[in-house]
């Protein structure tokens, strides 16, 4: 882990009408750090990580990702560059149902990075092997199990060779027996030099691989500490309450 910041936010706010979902978030994330975001439902976790690649525009404060300032004035090409450097994995997988698994993974490298078809498919094949399902390459997503689909989604994000990976509850839509296969892929990923921000309810994962826990509640970043401190000796009352409820 280097000491170089890759994501910095200052007083980020997001409002939906009168409702303020994020009420001033300040974070400083170093390159290669594994951040686990915890918090009760509706606390703004998804909203926060979606602001980082501007899937969710913010209305106040500053976000700088990889040296690029993100706001209304960010140019289209900067934004494209930024998004292609950030992988995003959704709770609902969001694979493209009309093309095969291999094509799902190879699409963006061709269209965004301008790779040739062969190159892109080679990359895709390597990633499919890495997530453990090379034999499924020619199937359509609907023919895969949930765990397999999510692994394809991770491979799809990795195909762009991102510097940052964002995960929004990647295992919440999965049957219990499939959660492990996805977590294994993520744990393997965490060992490499990639920055990860993971919203999850998997406390085991948070303890094992998290460098830092960020606890959100009601639009505030309530607590930031290492997993040891957070789980054994939380600083804030609200963190304690949260841990009592889920453990």
């Amino acid at each position: 882990m280097s000491e170089e910041s890759i994501i910095q936010t200052k007083d980020v706010t997001v409002s939906f009408g009168d409702f303020q979902a994020l009420k001033g978030i300040n974070v400083d994330i170093k390159q290669g750090e594994i951040i686990v975001v915890l918090g009760p439902s509706g606390s703004g976790k998804s909203t926060f990580i979606r602001t980082l690649n501007r899937l969710q525009p913010h209305d106040g404060g500053e976000i700088v990702v990889d040296g690029i300032q993100i706001n209304e004035d960010t140019t289209v090409s900067d934004l494209k560059q930024l998004r292609s450097d950030i992988g995003f994995v959704f709770q609902q997988f969001n694979l493209f149902p009309h093309i095969t698994v291999l094509e799902n993974i190879a699409l963006a490298p061709q269209k965004v990075r301008g790779m040739s078809k062969e190159e892109a498919e080679e990359v895709a094949m390597k990633l499919l092997e890495r997530v453990g399902i090379p034999e499924q390459k020619n199937k359509y997503p609907a023919a895969l199990s949930g765990g397999q689909q999510q692994r394809v989604a991770i491979a799809r994000a990795l195909a762009m060779d991102p510097k940052i990976m964002l995960f929004d509850e990647p295992t919440s839509a999965l049957d219990p027996e499939m959660i492990k296969e996805v977590l294994d892929v993520m744990i393997d990923l965490a060992k490499r030099d990639i920055t990860m921000i993971v919203v999850t309810h998997e406390m085991g994962f948070a303890k094992e691989v998290g460098d830092r826990i960020m606890f959100f509640d009601e639009g505030h970043l309530v607590e930031e500490s290492t997993p040891d401190v957070f789980f054994d000796n939380p600083k804030e009352d609200r963190s304690k309450l949260f841990l009592e409820q889920i453990l």
């Binding site: 899937l55 998004r83 292609s84 995003f88 959704f90 969001n94 762009m160």
Partner: peptide
């Protein structure tokens, strides 16, 4: 589903590419 649009946007595809592909 809107998720299709989001996933494609997050990959960096342009609005036209998202529409047509």
């Amino acid at each position: 589903p809107h998720g299709q649009f989001e996933a494609a946007t997050a990959l960096g595809l342009s609005p036209t590419q998202i529409k047509l592909r």
